[in-house]
Write a protein that binds this DNA or RNA. Sequence first.
DNA 1: CTATGATATGCAGAGTAATGCATATGCAGG
DNA 2: CCTGCATATGCATTACTCTGCATATCATAG
Lengths: 115, 115
Amino acid sequence: MDADKYRRGARLFHVLSHAARLQILDELRRRETCVCHLQAVVGRSQPYISQQLRVLREAGVIENYRDGPFVFYRLADDQVARLLEEVLGPARGPARLPVCSCPCCREEPSQAVPV
Amino acid sequence: MDADKYRRGARLFHVLSHAARLQILDELRRRETCVCHLQAVVGRSQPYISQQLRVLREAGVIENYRDGPFVFYRLADDQVARLLEEVLGPARGPARLPVCSCPCCREEPSQAVPV
DNA sequence: CTATGATATGCAGAGTAATGCATATGCAGG
DNA sequence: CCTGCATATGCATTACTCTGCATATCATAG
């Protein structure tokens, strides 16, 4: 049965069917960031952001790693990036100004790789 | 603001985040079909199928036209087809056997246009 | 060990979607 | 017109998601 195929697809689409989560992913496809940065970009409370990150993480869409007191998040694979490109258009370049005072905003990062 | 961009994207993903709707779309990307055919393929009641078709239609994802007593549905554009391809893999060929006794099953259709 | 900043988790109230079923509409044939 | 088939709509119930807030955890500095 390919009922499973549709269920899996539906679950994937489901985590994408949320404006704040989309904005988070749109930011993450530019570069990996810490939570406080996403908080500033999205303009929501920290628990709110963490909730959405959890949903995304449990769906396998993003990964995280800890660096000292900070936790950095990034896309887990290219599939989501392709879906975002299809629906949101191409990713914004890395040109945006710092939006908060977190480390990943201050020192424009080590991996300042242009497109 | 691109808040709208995310809202629109979220709405699109939302209509795709549903196993039965995905299965309907998967069938429609093979070829256009009437409602009774989808009913047989998906294995749900006719009102149920019509409900989901309405959701898809109101989202602009599919179109329909009437042919006598039958109503045929088809994908409205290529974007959804590309999203399905990304998530469900390539469309099944048109090789499947008739699943019901509706016209679009019986006479393998007038528009038997290969890819 | 304590304090502080960063992040995660738990929980409850409100809102929204999903589903099943009864019924309405629309079309064609007689 | 009346009947039968194809499809659509309305509605009520159930289930789930969203969101905000209080609080817990974890790491580092002192």
